[in-house]
């Protein structure tokens, strides 16, 4: 049943901060977010944490627990020993606003840089026809709850601020793949994936797949197939020759 758990929570702002120790009650069946809420209600009323649905569906409560990118609402306390200290810190890749809340506007800026769905010309609403097997590929990527843990963990930007401008991160490279695989999307998304969104910076270490709370196979099903399409265009000798002869590009 209930016990007194040891927590270390990062507190501070963009001006700096540090880990603070807390002893707080933990009950059967609880998740880390429950304990953070208990801290707010009993010890630190102004502890800032972002959350919403508390059921792993909205992707708001992303943070790092013992250094691992996780959703606070989907991390059960039962995975830790009772005498273990649980350390909760904000996502490292994005600037801290306060305590566990980070400025995730990078993600919204990148979302805007991906050209939107281009509907098929001449097909009226209600006339769209697609087979289940064809929509399933993009549906997997549309399971994304935009917790941004994949972008947080991706080493291309995690410790390389300088790459942020040219790299959309796994979340939005997957968005490009989703549109590219959409059965009715009419845009060609392959050249920009490499030139504008930084697909080439990804070296498929699969860290994004590892941290995805929706278990989307980001690397295998989105990023690698996109890389293959890029490679087909750029490096296939027949295509290369065709481009030269017929002056495409």
């Amino acid at each position: 049943m209930g016990y007194q758990g040891h927590f270390r929570v990062w507190r501070g702002s963009d001006q700096g901060g540090g880990l603070e120790d807390f002893t707080v009650e933990v009950n059967e069946g609880e998740v880390v977010l429950d304990v953070i809420h208990r801290l707010q209600a009993t010890q630190t009323p102004d502890l800032a944490v972002r959350w919403n649905c508390k059921a792993g569906k909205c992707g708001s409560c992303s943070a790092e627990i013992n250094g691992k990118p996780r959703l606070l609402c989907m991390t059960r306390m039962s995975v830790f020993a009772e005498d273990e200290t649980v350390t909760v810190t904000p996502m490292r890749t994005f600037p801290v606003i306060r305590d566990l809340v980070t400025d995730v506007s990078y993600n919204y800026e990148k979302a805007r840089e991906i050209p939107s769905f281009k509907p098929p010309a001449g097909v009226a609403p209600g006339e769209y026809r697609m087979q289940q097997v064809d929509v399933e590929r993009s549906q997997e990527f549309r399971k994304c709850i935009e917790c941004f843990l994949c972008n947080n963990t991706c080493h291309v930007i995690r410790d390389h601020e300088e790459n942020k401008e040219s790299f959309a991160g796994p979340r939005f490279l997957m968005r490009v793949a989703e549109l590219e695989m959409h059965p009715l999307d009419e845009a060609d998304r392959v050249p920009e994936a490499q030139s504008s969104h930084g697909l080439g910076l990804c070296n498929i270490t699969k860290c994004c797949t590892d941290v995805c709370p929706e278990h989307i196979k980001i690397t295998d099903n989105a990023l690698i197939p996109m890389k293959e399409r890029v490679a087909d265009r750029r490096y296939d000798p027949v295509v290369w020759l065709g481009n030269k002869l017929f002056r495409r590009n």
Partner: peptide, 24 residues
């Protein structure tokens, strides 16, 4: 309601499908 659902497809929504390719 039907028009509003079909409109979502023009925004890029991907609903589950029937065998004949319509929205299930």
């Amino acid at each position: 309601a039907p028009d509003r659902v079909w409109e979502l497809e023009t925004y890029g929504a991907l609903f589950d499908r029937t065998k004949d390719g319509r929205i299930s």
